[in-house]
């Protein structure tokens, strides 16, 4: 019999995510967990392969029932988690008995909490991945009250029931950038301004991109012919306020790209909230 997850409350936005897709030349975004390191840690704790499909919960607030029981682990944004009134530590695995209800409070720091289930979420892959792409609307629908998800049986090792200390989320977040292809579109001062000032995360940010507000980066006017983009591309629209593309961003764009966030540092941006300050640093 397949074990299942019943969704009692989805919180602000709960998505199935894994390691994402590799089809950019076919016009399909990478998608996948916005904080891949946090998902990989949760998966390691339950004994899954690092890119197994888990849940990405925006700001917590999720409640799940396990009719057959499960082994679970949570990583990423910090929140209070209980199962049948027992407090559960994050960053270690837990056995949940048949019928257990797991409830997450609101995240107190960070933005996205990941839940891994031993065996992985076993929904049908779409284009080689179980990730939801919120822009292209590919992959499993966002969770809703009453959604039932199957738990698979594919594992990669033993679960780990002791606490593992993850890298702390520190403020302000500093991410490393390397030059983009269009530095020639910018005043030479723009390359200094980008790293000399803090930029604030705006509310209009999501998995397609993080919009920042800060000292504008002076640039040439006009548009480029559409060119390929990447998660981490730092685009600068005419108003000079940078946008860092996220995992679900379209795969092409016409705004000049001044820099690209190093792939290793993208996870940090998966955890920043509106109002948070981010510092860019040339790698």
């Amino acid at each position: 019999m397949t074990a299942t997850i019943e969704v009692l409350a989805p919180g602000a936005l709960a998505l199935v995510e894994d390691g994402g897709r590799d089809l950019a030349e076919w016009g399909v975004a990478r998608s996948g967990a916005a904080d891949r390191r946090a998902l990989a840690l949760a998966n390691r704790l339950t004994g899954n392969a690092p890119n197994a499909a888990g849940l990405e919960c925006l700001l917590g607030g999720v409640s799940l029932r396990f009719p057959e029981g499960a082994i679970v682990a949570m990583s990423g944004a910090q929140c209070q988690i209980t199962a049948d009134r027992r407090a559960l530590d994050m960053n270690r695995a837990h056995h949940l008995a048949a019928g257990a209800v797991l409830t997450m409070g609101l995240a107190t720091s960070g933005l996205r909490t990941y839940i891994s289930f031993r065996g992985g979420i076993d929904v049908e892959p779409v284009l080689g991945s179980r990730s939801r792409d919120v822009l292209a609307m590919i992959g499993p629908e966002p969770l809703a009250v009453g959604t039932t998800l199957p738990i698979g049986s594919e594992t990669d090792g033993d679960a780990w029931f002791e606490f593992i200390s993850p890298a702390p989320l520190t403020q302000p977040v500093t991410v490393r950038v390397a030059p983009g292809p269009r530095t020639d579109w910018f005043d030479s001062s723009a390359l200094e301004l980008l790293v000399a000032n803090q930029y604030t995360v705006r509310g209009e940010s999501d998995r397609t991109g993080i919009r920042f507000m800060g000292v504008p980066l002076p640039r040439r006017s006009g548009d480029l012919a559409s060119e390929p983009t990447l998660p981490g591309s730092v685009q600068v629209p005419p108003d000079g306020q940078p946008i860092v593309l996220g995992p679900d961003a379209g795969v092409s764009g016409g705004y000049p790209v001044i820099a690209a966030v190093l792939d290793d540092d993208l996870d940090l941006l998966g955890q920043v909230r509106p109002g948070d300050a981010v510092t860019f640093r040339w790698a």
């Binding site: 950038v177 390397a178 030059p179 983009g180 292809p181 269009r182 530095t183 020639d184 030479s188 390359l191 200094e192 790293v195 990447l230 981490g232 591309s233 790209v257 820099a259 690209a260 966030v261 190093l262 792939d263 040339w282 790698a283």
Partner: peptide, 27 residues
């Protein structure tokens, strides 16, 4: 320090493809 702009993009003339410009896009 800001990246050395001069070292970023390189241009060349290809016999069939015409003028090319090659620039790093991140790492």
């Amino acid at each position: 320090a800001r990246p050395e702009l001069a070292s970023l993009a390189r241009s060349a003339e290809h016999p069939n493809l015409g003028t090319l410009r090659v620039a790093p896009y991140g790492r």
